[in-house]
Measured scan of single mutants.
Amino acid sequence: MPSETPQAEVGPTGCPHRSGPHSAKGSLEKGSPEDKEAKEPLWIRPDAPSRCTWQLGRPASESPHHHTAPAKSPKILPDILKKIGDTPMVRINKIGKKFGLKCELLAKCEFFNAGGSVKDRISLRMIEDAERDGTLKPGDTIIEPTSGNTGIGLALAAAVRGYRCIIVMPEKMSSEKVDVLRALGAEIVRTPTNARFDSPESHVGVAWRLKNEIPNSHILDQYRNASNPLAHYDTTADEILQQCDGKLDMLVASVGTGGTITGIARKLKEKCPGCRIIGVDPEGSILAEPEELNQTEQTTYEVEGIGYDFIPTVLDRTVVDKWFKSNDEEAFTFARMLIAQEGLLCGGSAGSTVAVAVKAAQELQEGQRCVVILPDSVRNYMTKFLSDRWMLQKGFLKEEDLTEKKPWWWHLRVQELGLSAPLTVLPTITCGHTIEILREKGFDQAPVVDEAGVILGMVTLGNMLSSLLAGKVQPSDQVGKVIYKQFKQIRLTDTLGRLSHILEMDHFALVV
């Protein structure tokens, strides 16, 4: 994948999101292997301009796509893939009243899908469409860049269908997702969380590099694949309309690839034109409109599966009536509230959605109805927002919020430890010299600072030695090549209790 991002070429006709291997024109390309080798690009942008032909009021008969309808489940399912879809609609009884809503608040519980998330729908649909058009064949390999849930859905379907599955996901995604993927037989590649989507090191860039190296491999490409919004247009939206008897006044959905909100909203605009569509985008993402909503100094966020630093091709923002931004604290607070007060075992993005819903639905009156999409299960986040310690460490809970008995030293300040200034190293000294210094002084790690004293990161003896043994660096290389740029900081005025929580999850903390 090139470091400079080429513009994806656009073909003359058809839909841009065809499933299957992508040609340089962004659509299915038939021909000899030699032709494909000559024409197939190194990668295709996940934010390529959409060429979708959908228009409100256009006859369904003019759609270029294969459409399906929700099917009634048999008493005995032939395999677990038949437990994807037909998820329950559940009334939220307490939270709406707590925040003064007059309307009825309903939750579409997508964590009841077989793999635990709304992404099971698009995973199965992308595979079925690729099999139907002859792209996927027995023994082929599926590769997908994902925040985890699409990966789980694909790995689940691949396990049943017999495909090899490789999932490329950023490091910030939970260990629970990784464990589930491994249990399903998927191979996992992790990428830096802070890598831009168009960087060769991003999950998108690495996935395309693997595709170019592995024979008979395919990126189904949830960011561009029409099967993504079509899955929701054909099934999720129809289920909502049936469950609500066609009567709903507002739908609120958090947005990642945009397939969920695009597919549902398009069908609702056709069948229930008075329904307002509300999009939820986390602070630090750029999906919301108008652009002024996205202006923030924050560039990272903890909530998973929603928000991006690019506009995915499948996201149709014209069908969203209003956007709201959400933050991590309210997302996790509301997710825990949904679990504790409503018994809905949902993930953090569901918290984002409901946090926005109780604001947006203030305009609705008694007798009206708001539906929220709860995308995934708490299963993926047992060591994250479900953990009091994690919430404390991230600053989303305060010590006084917890009532468990603490040891005698818990409320003492870090400054009472009488710490001395640490050994520091410059980023320009060599790895070999740094190892000598650390061994001589008896230290395992040291902060790396520039000549102005600005902290650049941390270097550890173990990481340097393993990097040297693996051949990633040489003793003569500058130590700046092996620094940890993500590390926890703590102030002298913070409590030892807070430091204790940090050290339970990290090997060190830097006192500043």
Rank of each mutant, 00 (worst) to 15 (best):
P2M: 11
P2D: 10
T5H: 07
P6A: 08
G11I: 03
P16H: 08
P21E: 11
H22V: 13
A24F: 12
K25M: 11
L28V: 14
K30G: 11
G31W: 15
G31K: 11
S32L: 11
E34R: 03
D35V: 13
D35R: 07
A38L: 12
K39W: 13
E40A: 10
P41Q: 11
W43L: 12
W43S: 06
I44Y: 11
I44K: 13
I44L: 09
R45A: 10
P46M: 01
D47I: 04
P49H: 07
S50I: 05
C52T: 01
C52P: 00
W54N: 06
R58H: 15
R58S: 05
E62M: 14
H66C: 15
H67G: 05
A71R: 12
K72N: 11
K72V: 09
S73V: 13
K75W: 13
K75A: 15
I76D: 07
L77K: 07
L77V: 12
L77Y: 08
P78C: 09
D79A: 03
L81W: 03
T87L: 03
T87Y: 00
P88R: 08
P88Q: 08
M89H: 01
I92K: 04
K94R: 15
I95M: 10
K97M: 09
F99Y: 13
G100S: 07
L101W: 00
C103T: 02
A107G: 15
A107Q: 07
E110A: 02
A114K: 06
G115C: 08
K119E: 06
D120L: 07
R121L: 01
S123H: 07
L124I: 06
I127K: 07
E128A: 04
E128W: 08
E128K: 10
P138V: 08
P138W: 12
G139P: 08
I143N: 00
E144M: 00
P145R: 00
G148D: 03
G148V: 06
N149T: 02
G151M: 00
G151H: 00
I152C: 02
I152E: 01
I152P: 01
L154D: 01
L156P: 01
A158E: 02
A159Y: 02
V160S: 09
V160G: 07
V160K: 04
G162I: 07
I167G: 08
V168M: 07
V168D: 01
E171N: 09
S175F: 08
S175Q: 12
K177D: 00
K177E: 04
V180N: 01
L181K: 01
A183W: 02
L184E: 02
A186C: 01
E187N: 10
I188T: 05
I188A: 04
I188N: 00
V189W: 08
V189Q: 06
R190P: 00
R190Y: 06
T191K: 02
T191F: 01
T193N: 11
N194A: 11
A195G: 03
F197A: 06
S199C: 10
P200Y: 12
S202N: 07
H203W: 03
G205C: 11
A207Q: 00
W208V: 08
K211M: 15
E213P: 06
P215R: 06
N216I: 07
N216F: 07
I219E: 03
L220H: 02
R224F: 03
N225P: 02
N225G: 00
A226E: 09
N228P: 02
L230A: 04
A231F: 03
A231D: 08
T235N: 12
T236L: 06
A237Q: 07
E239N: 01
I240Q: 01
I240R: 00
L241C: 05
Q242D: 12
Q243D: 14
Q243C: 06
K247D: 03
L248T: 09
M250C: 01
L251M: 11
V255T: 09
T257Y: 00
G258V: 00
I261Q: 00
G263V: 01
G263D: 00
I264C: 14
E270M: 06
E270I: 05
K271W: 08
K271D: 04
C272Y: 11
C272I: 06
P273K: 14
C275P: 02
